[in-house]
């Protein structure tokens, strides 16, 4: 594999049919961090996502078949880990997560010595999503404000924990990943961030009742199976307004 500096920050963006949004997101990301390594994981898109991402200078991991959100995310994290990353920042390619908010996450990581920082935006949830979060919190014993946010920073220890084969049994990056991190003694912190509506496409999960029901059944079973005796209340980091 090609070598890159060991101190590198890798940005991992899973993308599925995001040709409309990905170019703008990558341009903004490049403006925020000109030296960061950007990895777009194309989850078997049918549109021009790959070409757009390549044109923006990103490393593109083209999947030959669709692995779902977590499978794609893990591929990007494996790639970053193999290159010797220091930390991985994950975000959506649909424009929901603002590159301008990354500093809040990295600042929280530096200040709290956390292994993982989650960018939380509780206002964004639809009624369906909020119902799902409440039930998931009750069943899992994990109290987080925004359970499904994919806007996160992982340090090297957390990345190493998540690129293993056991983590490939997971399908989503929410409860299973959080339970795995917390169960292995990782410090997970939340910080409030701004998010915006997606530029294009729709949520792969929260777009129809049958899909939500199937996702909830899977997640509830996972939450109960992975539940530990102790409750995990994620620490909330209040970002300084200077970074706004």
């Amino acid at each position: 594999m090609l070598e890159t500096p060991q101190t590198a920050t890798y940005y991992v963006l899973p993308a599925w049919n995001e040709e409309v949004a990905v170019g703008k997101v990558l341009a903004e990301l490049r403006r925020v961090d000109p030296l960061g390594y950007i990895v777009v994981v194309d989850d078997a898109s049918c549109d021009e996502t790959i070409k757009t991402a390549e044109a923006c200078g990103a490393y593109v991991l083209p999947m030959v078949c669709q692995l779902g959100p977590w499978g794609a995310m893990q591929a990007g994290m494996r790639y970053a880990a193999e290159k010797g990353c220091r930390r991985v920042i994950t975000m959506d390619a649909d424009g929901q997560h603002l590159p301008s908010q990354i500093l809040r996450l990295t600042d929280a990581m530096n200040q709290t010595d956390a292994n993982v920082v989650i960018g939380a935006c509780s206002q964004r949830g639809s009624f369906l999503r909020k119902c799902a979060w409440t039930i998931m919190k009750l069943c899992s014993g994990i109290s987080a404000e925004d359970l499904t946010s994919g806007f996160r920073v992982y340090d090297r220890r957390a990345v190493d924990l998540l690129v293993g084969e056991e983590a490939s049994y997971l399908e989503h990056q929410d409860m299973g990943v959080l339970a795995r991190l917390l169960g292995n003694g990782m410090k997970v912190v939340e910080v409030d961030v701004e998010m915006q509506s997606r530029v294009s496409g729709a949520s792969r999960i929260f777009n129809s009742w049958p899909k939500v029901l199937w996702y909830m059944l899977q997640t509830l079973l996972l939450s109960v199976s992975k539940r530990r005796v102790e409750r995990f209340n994620l620490e909330k980091y209040k970002a300084a307004s200077a970074h706004d």
């Binding site: 030959v64 499978g71 084969e165």
Partner: peptide, 25 residues
């Protein structure tokens, strides 16, 4: 079957990683 699916996932991920490197090279 779960084990097989995980193996396929790992292989697909590895293939994508290698493709990215080949393209870069």
């Amino acid at each position: 079957r779960s084990l097989s699916e995980v193996k396929i996932t790992r292989i697909v991920q590895r293939l994508a990683m290698l493709e990215a490197d080949i393209k870069r090279l």
